[in-house]
Design a protein around this nucleic acid. Structure first.
Lengths: 220, 220
DNA sequence: GGCAAGACTCGTACGGTGTACGAATTCATT
DNA sequence: AATGAATTCGTACACCGTACGAGTCTTGCC
C-alpha cells in the first residue's frame, strides 16, 4: 500500500488533498458555524462535525476542550466586528454598532440564544468597548456609562433573541393569533391590535432604541 | 362492589398512598418545575421526571406529547400572574407588571432562556394583555401600542436572560474582568469602568425601563 | 543512519438521552 | 362476567458527548 500523500514534507499537512489540510481550531470553528447555520443549535453534533471535517470524532478533542468550547468558538467567530473606527456622531455610531450587532446575530440565529449563556468572547468585548467609547464621547457621565451599556445590551439581546426564535415562522404566529381569536374575550386588547401579527421588526427595534437613547442622552 | 368512597380519580392503587394520586398534566408540570428549579435546564429528563412521579417513563407520554411539551407546561405554570386588577396609575402599573414578570422569571432562572424559544402560553398572554390595557389607558396611540409592547418585551427579556445566566456566578465575571486587565490596552474603557463587575442589576433594570417609558409616553 | 519524544489522530466503549412500539393492566359500562 | 376504552409501562433503538488508550506522524538529537 503506497502512502497516499507526498512523503517529502508534511505528511498530512501538505497532502495531495486540498480538502483536509489538518485540523485547526479555526477550521473547526468555521465548519461549526456552517453546520449551525444549516440546522440550528441542535444541528451541531461532534460526530457530524468530525464527518464534515473528514476526521475522526475524537481527533477534535485534541484541539477543543469539549462541545461547549466549540460553541464558544463558533460564537466568537461569528461576532467579529469590522466597522469604521472613526468617531463622529456619537449617537449615530451607537445606532450603527447596535444595528450591526443585531444584523450579525440574525444572520446566524443560533448565536442570539447562545450569547447570553456563554462567556464573553473577545469579539463581543470589542463591541462593548466601542459602545463605551461612544457613550463617553457623547458626554454620558462616567458613573452612568455602565448602566447605559447594560440597558442597550439588554434591549438588543431581547429584541434579537425574540426575533430569532419567533420571527422565522410567521405561520406559528398566525396560528397563535388564531387561537387568540378563538379564546374569545380572554385577550380582547391584544387580539384587536393583532399584536402577534405585527412583523415590522426592524421598525420597532429602531423605535425602541431611540426611546432608550433619548433617555440615556445627557440632559440639559 | 364496595362503595366508591368518592375516589373516582382513576387511582389504580388503593388509597393508602397519598403520594401518587395518578398522573395528570398538572402533576407533571409541577414536578417538572421542581426539577428545573433544582438542577436547571439540563436537570430535567424524562426518566428523572417519571421517577419523581413514581411512574414508568413511557406513561408520561400518554399525558404529554413530548419533552418540549413538558417545557411548555412548566413554563406556563411558572408564569401565572396574580396581580391587582385595578388600574390607577398607568405607568406605575406597567412598572409593576414588568418587575413582577422579571422577578418571577428570576425565581426560576431556566424560564428566562426558555420563554423566547417556546410558543406563547396563556399566562404570558395575560401579562401582555394587561400591558396593552395599561398603555391604552396611558393614552398611547392605537398604532403605537404594539411597538411599545414589543419594546418593553425586548427589554425585559434581554435583562432577565442576561441576569439569569451571568448573574449567579460573580466568580466568572470577576475572572473575565481579570482577563480584561491582562489583555492590557485592548479594552481600556470597559476595563477602567469595571463594566463586568457592575452588579446593581435591579437598579440598571429600573433605570433603563424609565428611559424606555419616557420615550413611550405620549408627547405633548 | 537510528531513535526517542512530543504532536496529533482515531477506534472502541460506556453511560446517558428521547421516544416508538406494543403488550399489559385497570376502569367504567353493561 | 364481559367488553371496550383509558391508562400504564418494559423493552428496544438510534443517537448523543466523551474517557481511554493504542496507533501514527513529525521533529530534533545523536
Amino acid at each position: 500500500m503506497a502512502d497516499k500523500q507526498g512523503k517529502a514534507r508534511g505528511g498530512r499537512e501538505q497532502g495531495a488533498e486540498p480538502n483536509e489540510p489538518g485540523l485547526t481550531r479555526e477550521r473547526i470553528a468555521a465548519t461549526a458555524v456552517v453546520m449551525l447555520d444549516a440546522n440550528g443549535l441542535n444541528g451541531l453534533t461532534m460526530r457530524g462535525l468530525a464527518e464534515a471535517l473528514g476526521s475522526g470524532v475524537m481527533s477534535l478533542y485534541w484541539h477543543v476542550q469539549n462541545k461547549d468550547d466549540v460553541f464558544d468558538l463558533a460564537l466568537d467567530t461569528v461576532l467579529e466586528y469590522r466597522g469604521p473606527t472613526a468617531l463622529q456622531d456619537w449617537r449615530g455610531d451607537i445606532v450603527h454598532v447596535l444595528e450591526d450587532w443585531r444584523a450579525t446575530m440574525l444572520r446566524h440565529p443560533w448565536s442570539a440564544s447562545l450569547l447570553p449563556r456563554r462567556a464573553l468572547g473577545p469579539n463581543i468585548l470589542v463591541r462593548l468597548e466601542r459602545l463605551s467609547k461612544c457613550l463617553a464621547a457623547g458626554g454620558v457621565a462616567d458613573g452612568e456609562v455602565n448602566a447605559a451599556i447594560w440597558s442597550l445590551w439588554n434591549y438588543v439581546m431581547g429584541a434579537t433573541v425574540t426575533r430569532a426564535s419567533f420571527g422565522p415562522s410567521n405561520e406559528d404566529r398566525a396560528a397563535s393569533q388564531q387561537r387568540l381569536a378563538e379564546l374569545g374575550a380572554l385577550y380582547p386588547s391584544i387580539e384587536r391590535s393583532r399584536l402577534l401579527l405585527d412583523d415590522d421588526w426592524d421598525g420597532t427595534f429602531r423605535r425602541g432604541l431611540d426611546f432608550l437613547l433619548d433617555g440615556i442622552a445627557p440632559k440639559r
